[in-house]
Design a protein around this nucleic acid. Sequence first.
DNA 1: CCCTGATTCGC
DNA 2: GCGAATCAGG
Length: 166
Amino acid sequence: MGWTDERVENLKKLWQDGLSASQIAKQLGGVTRNAVIGKVHRLGLSGRATPSKPARPVFKAPRPQRAVAQPAAPRRIAEPLVAQAPVPAPVRYIDEAPGSATVLTLGAHMCKWPIGDPSTDGFTFCGRRQDDGPYCAEHARVAYQPAQAKKRSGPNELARSLRRYI
DNA sequence: CCCTGATTCGC
DNA sequence: GCGAATCAGG
């Protein structure tokens, strides 16, 4: 099947309506999504609000070296005898200065409050003297307070917030 | 593994 | 011009 004027017109409409290439291909019939994408490019209409990765105009971070595998996410450290508080993880990242410890230097008695984005190199832990649970006094306050405060808003929100840590 | 668009390149 | 193969991502 070729690109008749009618089909091209249809393609333009559907594409600008925000349908994905595969959806358009399915609807037009007789073409694959690759064909649709190829045609779209040849027609010169490429930019569009894509539902898939509309994310950000951020720059492609130059990923120089991924020499050695970075240690994975911080493993939760078991806290056997803490019965009262079920070791809730910090509900969200908070903007603050990098901690003194890294994944490699985080010691047994150091505050394990994560600071920054675990997927990037700037990731640290607070590293101050551990006080309450796995955290220093200040972070323990922040860590445990939301869990109680949010009780009222229902478990779902909390569960959602915690999911990424499990 | 599902999906997204982008690019390449032989046809 | 066409689109499969491939790539780079979410």
